[in-house]
Amino acid sequence: MDTQDCTEVTDAAELRALLGEPSARDAAKERPTLHEHDRAFIAAAPFCVMATAGADGSCDASPKGDPAGFTLVLDERTIAVPERPGNRRADGFHNILANPHVGLLYLIPGRGDTLRVNGRARLVRDAPFFDRLTVKGHRPRLAVVVEIEAVYYHCSKAFLRSALWKPETWNPDAAPSRARISKSLERRDEPLAALEEYYGPSYGGDLYGS
């Protein structure tokens, strides 16, 4: 696609002229510490997205999920997010080693509002609180400890526009299956039938293995 004819926004003043100014309430809604409502939201959230950026500006957004309350609140300015077994790429972790700034977006299924937590992260391989992060006998090998700098809520407009939580709008078969994607892009030499079995009902049987 040729983007040469796009009209680009190139500075903050132009951006503000286009979008307008935030209300005084919205401009001032960031807080540096967790309120009791934030603690309750985090305790109820089984999922968040962790955004990071490397020293070169390359970005990563990684999903994190576990039973509700998987993020441990250590105090009003500190939280810990456990790592669980995955693909071992560790893109976000490499970013944190180079650039500690992170953003986390917490979701509660069925709710439109989300909680944003921004701060500075450290990778911790062990600490006394790791026992409290154990799930189904799995004690994490690593946790991301975030020193909070800003906390605030996002409104539900994006969820309302997308109808994300309305089951009648769901169509999981609209895109190729995970098995077909893997066959085309990642595991070309493996039979599709084998991949469909691999990504089938038994796929979640070892979520906390090594």
Rank of each mutant, 00 (worst) to 15 (best):
C48F: 06
A55R: 10
V144R: 06
H35C: 05
R125P: 06
E36N: 02
F41Y: 08
P67K: 04
L142V: 04
P109T: 09
L160M: 13
R125N: 11
A61H: 11
G57V: 14
P67S: 05
F70L: 13
V49A: 06
H37F: 11
Y106N: 06
A163T: 08
R88N: 15
H138D: 11
T52W: 14
V73S: 01
G57Y: 15
E147F: 01
D38L: 07
T134L: 10
N99D: 14
Y152V: 01
L142C: 04
P82Q: 05
T33M: 07
L105P: 06
F130G: 02
E83C: 07
F93K: 14
G54C: 13
A80T: 06
H154I: 04
A45G: 12
L123E: 10
V124K: 05
D131A: 12
A40N: 03
L142G: 01
D131L: 02
E149Q: 08
R89P: 06
T134N: 10
I42D: 02
A127W: 01
V145G: 01
A80S: 07
R122K: 14
H154L: 10
N99K: 13
V135F: 06
R161W: 08
V73H: 00
R111L: 15
P140G: 08
H37W: 07
N118E: 01
D131W: 05
R120A: 12
N95Q: 15
A44L: 03
A68V: 07
R122N: 14
R84K: 08
V135H: 05
D56Y: 06
M50Y: 02
A98K: 15
S156F: 04
I148M: 01
R132K: 14
F70V: 15
A53P: 06
I108M: 03
G86C: 02
D131K: 09
V102T: 03
E36V: 05
R120Q: 12
T78Y: 08
R84E: 02
D38E: 11
A98E: 15
I42T: 03
R125T: 13
K29C: 01
R139F: 10
T33L: 12
R111I: 09
I96S: 09
L74S: 01
R88L: 15
L133G: 03
P63E: 04
L72A: 04
R141N: 12
S162P: 03
S162H: 06
K136A: 15
R161H: 14
L133K: 05
A80P: 04
A51P: 11
R161N: 12
C59P: 04
H35Y: 03
T71F: 04
T134I: 11
T33K: 08
I96E: 10
P100A: 13
F159I: 11
R89D: 09
D56C: 05
L164I: 11
N87T: 08
L133C: 07
A143K: 02
K136I: 15
P100S: 14
R120I: 04
V151Y: 00
G110R: 07
A90S: 15
C59N: 08
A127T: 01
P128M: 07
Y153W: 10
N87A: 07
A158Q: 05
D75L: 03
